[in-house]
Amino acid sequence: MNENKLVWVFIEQRDGKPAEVSFELLSKGRKLAESLNGELQAVLIGHNMQAVAEETFHYGVTDVLLADHPDLNHYNTLPYSRIMSELVDRYQPRIVLFGGTFIGRDLAPRVASHTRSGLTADCTDLQVSDVTYLRKDYSRLLLQIRPAFGGNIIATIICPDSPVQMATVREGVMEKIPLSQPVAGRITPVYYEPDAADQLVRIIARHHEESKVNLKAAPIIVAGGYGMGNWQNFQILYELARVIGGEVAGTRAAVDAGYIDHVRQVGQTGVTVRPKLYIACGISGAIQHRAGMSESNKIIAINADPDAPIFGVCHYGIVGDVMEVIPKLIDAYKHKLK
């Protein structure tokens, strides 16, 4: 078995800017490395990445494996997965974490396939623990915890016989916790030799807008679910959000029904948020959704069904028709605070 105790985080960047989720994973990775008595390391691929590499020292990274080359400027599946796979083969880290993003979800399965590692998608919690599985004892395995099967169950996945254990985690799930003082880490250059096969897919145009939505930073979130009934009804949430100064979000069911865009999805396969106030409107409260909002400071639930699971996580529960309750709430706010 792999005696290695390295915890790796793949640091993703877009236009030279590191992704928030990478720092969140470093913060979690540091704790996992402590549980393993191991070391936290980062893998960074891009061009002119020195400053980003140094930023990881604020999260306890002792060594950054850095592949820096003009051809690696933008994420591209083949060269990135080739570099990452070769590094995993060579160093055999015990744990590798990727963001559950367009990049991480493209890259991680490819690397896991090449190295024949276990990979669990969209984990909502990660722990290290001794495990007995099929009457065999395993020391310090990675517990990969995620809701599964329509939210009816929470599954703990392990990779008992896989030397390398991999997981992806969505943005916001782990908390970003920088150290007060950076550690004295080192940067290890990774030599990149361009290969014709790396260019089998070529980027010929890119269109990327800065996200206008930052749910994670919003102090108040007004969220709607499938229970809003239709797109027209959903619009009342924007009115409420405008009056009380919040952002609008939705559940996966609301996104699937076309009420709201995916960038505003809260939950296991969307963003995890911890606002001061979360108002859940017409949301039944499936576990995948609750995974993304249950740590909000205060939660108000408005639902016509008194047995909706959302009432199990809220602080204030209102049983009623959202289309009648929300206008009353807006009026009350205006009366009291304006």
Partner: peptide
């Protein structure tokens, strides 16, 4: 390589 170690029903 991945195995289900534990399943918990979601109890509300």
């Amino acid at each position: 390589p991945t195995k289900v170690h534990k399943i918990e029903s979601v109890v509300l």
